[in-house]
Amino acid sequence: MSAGSPVGMLFRKRYLADHLRDREGVDFLELCTDHYLDNTPSVADELGLLVKHFTCVPHGIDLSLGSRDGIVESYLDDVLRVVEQIRPPWFSDHLAFTRAGGYEIGHLAPIPLTRDALDTLARNVARVTARTRVPFALENVAATFAFPHAEMSPGAFVRELVARTGCGLVIDVANLACDEINLGHAPEAFIDAVPPEAIVQVHLAGAHDDGGIAVDSHSSPVPPRVWQLLERVVDVAPHAWLTLEREEALPPYHEIARELDAARALAARVRNGRVPA
């Protein structure tokens, strides 16, 4: 693994052969936890292969930490089983809810920025961290709307969550760029507000425009604005692991490798430009 920010990507099966051929191309792979919850032989074989050859970090999507209904214990059991198999430096999910009052949304919904929602989140995060010694981190999601009755800014909300739970942060700079377009939120204000020591990982990706709405589709190359925000995060959190996410319109691997190299170069440039303490 490189001396500076490790650089990796969200694992897509299409690139498995490329990763095995070019082991130095990624320092780690982020795995979608939910893909490995089915304990079938083929799933177990794939997970075993990845864990054997790469450092892996699981990233889940359905803990629904913002739900007042609480964590679904059977799902948490399954997630922790995968975490035990991988033995990662941390695992993560999202600052979101996917169910409420018995309704299954089936996708990540942003959390109202209220003190009550913060209480719920803190309670659910504590429930997760009480079950494992592996550190747990949360990722900011992109939103196309904001709930009314906000009582604090997104950055203040996350800062207080970290203070109350000790959780880590996965900063998705692509999502911050989407929120800037969709909600008018200032990404820099968010980055400056959250405790840098909590930032363990950064996500970068491309979005697409849907009639003026930025959609976090992970379907295009990383745009300049996201590189710009990445630079800011790396400046405050130089050891955060950088993760390229590409889920749609998958390009040839050499294009992915080029973006991974660009992330590596950016991190080195920021690191070299820092004044030693």
Binding site: R68, A100, G101, Y103, A109, P112, T114, D116, A117, H149
Partner: peptide
């Protein structure tokens, strides 16, 4: 109440 109701 409002937070809970908003989500539901």
């Amino acid at each position: 109440t409002v937070t809970d109701e908003m989500q539901i």
